[in-house]
Amino acid sequence: MPIIKQVDSEINDTEKRLNARDFPGLLEQLESNDPSARRWAARDLATHSEAAKALVQRLKREDDKSVGEAILTTLTKLADPVAVACLVECLRSEDVALRNEVIEAMKNLPNEVAPIMGSLLTDTDPDVRIFAVNILESLRHPQVETWLMEVIKNDTHVNVCATALDLLGEVGTLASLDALQNLKLKFSDQPYIIFAADLAIKRISEA
């Protein structure tokens, strides 16, 4: 039979450790010219809580997608305040793909992102505020509706409010109705806001 069997020991023997896997060794590997070595360093750094800064520094200039993904996954697993701050920093990047990856990563960190959500939603940059609402879309946290109500109540940027409004249409409860009515008054010259707010109000009232 041409199906041949490889014994388990051979599977394990294929792994040869050429470089030190301690913290200094992994940082060195993170700067290797070989993307595969960088990717493995990024994955192995998940057990080193002090690795976040070095990972983000690498992420900002990383041109290999697979290494970038490994770094983001490791930052998500580290999930300490430094890692989260580093992710927030990447939200301000001009690199759209990186921003989207970071938004996805932050959706997986409800407890870590919650303490900084207030400041993200009041950031001076409306794009960052929109990204923060994007994070709320899948953030498993009981305060999501409250955050969204605050956005449509306080934010003056129509695109930020429209993004929050779309999400409230999905997750809002009767508690959101007043805020939705007020939003219609605040943007009475914006047909989309009126339409989407009416839809959300109808959906919530009929639920």
Binding site: R39, W40, S66, T73, T76, K77
Partner: peptide
């Protein structure tokens, strides 16, 4: 799997 574990599995397959 949850989202993070799925990503990790994808990276494992990639390698």
């Amino acid at each position: 799997f949850d989202d993070v574990s799925r990503r990790q599995a994808a990276e494992t397959f990639f390698d």
